[in-house]
Design a protein around this nucleic acid. Sequence first.
DNA 1: GTTAAAAAAGCTGATTACACCCTGTTTTAC
DNA 2: GTAAAACAGGGTGTAATCAGCTTTTTTAAC
Lengths: 217, 217
Amino acid sequence: MYPEKINIAIVDDHTLFRQGLASLLNDSDKINVLFDAENGQDMIKKISQNPLPEVILMDITMPLMDGYESTKWIKQHHPEIKVLALSMFEEDKPIIAMLKSGAGGYMLKQSKAADLIEAITGIAQQSFYINELVSGKLLRNIQNNQPLKTQQVEINANELKFLELCCSDLTYKQIADIMNLSPHTIDNYREALFQKFDTKSRTGLVIAALKQDLIKI
Amino acid sequence: MYPEKINIAIVDDHTLFRQGLASLLNDSDKINVLFDAENGQDMIKKISQNPLPEVILMDITMPLMDGYESTKWIKQHHPEIKVLALSMFEEDKPIIAMLKSGAGGYMLKQSKAADLIEAITGIAQQSFYINELVSGKLLRNIQNNQPLKTQQVEINANELKFLELCCSDLTYKQIADIMNLSPHTIDNYREALFQKFDTKSRTGLVIAALKQDLIKI
DNA sequence: GTTAAAAAAGCTGATTACACCCTGTTTTAC
DNA sequence: GTAAAACAGGGTGTAATCAGCTTTTTTAAC
């Protein structure tokens, strides 16, 4: 009566989630979990040791090799495998980035099991699946058509050091002393960074650097 | 041969994780999952509708009623129930905060199923369980004995608005215009906040406010 | 209701650091 | 040798910082 079960793999660094999900999906008569892996590197190893899955459920944030890289690797070496991204985050950026990396769909971990199974069967047949919760955001993003990531700014070690020292009450003169540079050189650094970050004040500089994860506080 | 299974409940807003974990744990001959809930409010409802569990696996970040509040409620209304916090984060703050709220242990979602079952049985018998990964951090924190949160600074709505506007290239004059206040009043705000945050510059102010989670960027 | 105390808002003026300029030197790479 | 980069000096206008003070509003006591 039923067609063949869909063979899948699960890649997620949270062991409890990974194994729990495998247990849950194996209870279904539509899904068969071939193997699971705790990051992209582990996945690459296990793909060579197991039959190829039809669908891979892919977490995004993982150590060693994250979901973006892993998905790209899949699409390069086994383009017939469909990737369904699975994440906690409902933000635009990771969703779009995963789809750009080659994922055929995106599910939230808040989803119900039945919806996930529907997504897996959907993606297996049609190569893509976008659920409603996410599609609204997608549409908005595509319509706005604004570049997703403010293009990463290239900075060197000295500029980074300067940025870190900027996150304080230190005056530029004091920063110059700490970095063993002339205050005028610091001026040059500042102006260069103002241009790069499109800002006009030290505060704006710090905020921009923080937003781009260049510095931490 | 085996003793009675341990009755537990799972509280987590990620449906897939919750149900997957339930499926996984129900496969064990030591654990019986009585019910699950997607947040603290749901948990309170279901506790009244089900037999009392011995142990509750509790996520921290949840909508409507988070892990801290939920654990406090448990300890107030059913102090005999042990709470095992379950989270992705290995940071000090949430761990300590959950233990303070009354949790008897803390497990990372990166853990293995066997470790979780060990933790559950451990906490059921001894009322607490701290795994090694986390205990190192705990010890460090206790040894350092530094206050976990720099004592919260009290600020009013206007000061908060001002702080938010400070995170920009806007000059104080422009901020005064936006807030419909005299630039001199802005001076007063700034000076008051400089004192509260023990800083001397706009940059220091923004950094301090960010550190205290008063503003987001 | 009056009134004193406290808090918030507003003002003046002086000093300092920041933002921005142009120019020149040293270092590095090809 | 030349070009690019990093570094450095001098100088200017503006915004930020800071101290001290007055006025208005709020709070609370009487």
